[in-house]
Design a protein around this nucleic acid. Sequence first.
DNA 1: GTGGAATGCTTGAGCTTGCAATTATTTGGG
DNA 2: CCCAAATAATTGCAAGCTCAAGCATTCCAC
Lengths: 153, 153
Amino acid sequence: MSETTESERVKGELAESDQVMSLIGLNSKIQKRIGGALSAHGIGVTEYLVLNQLYATPTQTMRRSDLAERVGLSPSGVTRLITPMEKTGLVQKEDNPRDARVSLVTLSASGKQIYEDAQASFAHASAALLEPLTDEQLRAFSECLKVLSKGFS
Amino acid sequence: MSETTESERVKGELAESDQVMSLIGLNSKIQKRIGGALSAHGIGVTEYLVLNQLYATPTQTMRRSDLAERVGLSPSGVTRLITPMEKTGLVQKEDNPRDARVSLVTLSASGKQIYEDAQASFAHASAALLEPLTDEQLRAFSECLKVLSKGFS
DNA sequence: GTGGAATGCTTGAGCTTGCAATTATTTGGG
DNA sequence: CCCAAATAATTGCAAGCTCAAGCATTCCAC
């Protein structure tokens, strides 16, 4: 009784392979298009992700390790990404008086402004990217992505 | 008459921003999970993409620049990726007698074997990744990805 | 044919990121 | 109180990639 089950499972997995392959290809496209759109604002995709996280936080302040997890980067990646962002004034570094180990990152006024500008470009590029989908497909796609993003890291 | 249209367009774009953000997050997950699964075979995700392309070609041979476009890499990226693969015997380099500029890449017997092994791991990891989707969602998702992958580069 | 444009690949320099080791600080059991 | 374990961030090194420049070869208009 296991033979048909097995063959169906394998067939299913192959289909899912194709979809992951498509996702990888799609990501390549995203990086190029979105990256191109954001370059007009002097930031890269990863920097945008960081600004996005800070902007969405009530205090606009976050610990580096939380930031790392949120944007899918390693802690060292965050350090090396943020150092130049601090130099250009997008964010500011702050100490946590309660715990001297943590290093807080805050969105600066100019960082907020640049993020808001970049947000428009990001939205525009995103719309162009997903333009081939019908409204109905877009809704279904959105639903799938929501499900898949549940447990993130 | 343009006001509501404009506001709807902007609202639409914001929703699409969210989806692209989800896609970026999803890609981070893919790279980690699939990369982890493939590491058991001694190859990375990009190397898998190359083997996959060669395997799918009737002659199992391809020009480097075609390979570059297919896997979304720059030509120099292909050179630097393939050099070690040649050393480990996954692929072989061949000259094209008709045009001495081009450098052909061929899948070797051991490369073919390793690809087939890796394919199973890739499929398994892909299935696990998409497991939260219902069958119906999976079909819709597949359809969307097919549409979005139409014009690739 | 011949010279300049186009094509295919490689190489040098540099960027971004991860992993492992290191440093600094806090926490908790004794 | 104190020391070991845990936690947060940074740093050295290496991998993987891109861009721009360079080289070899082919194509094409004349």
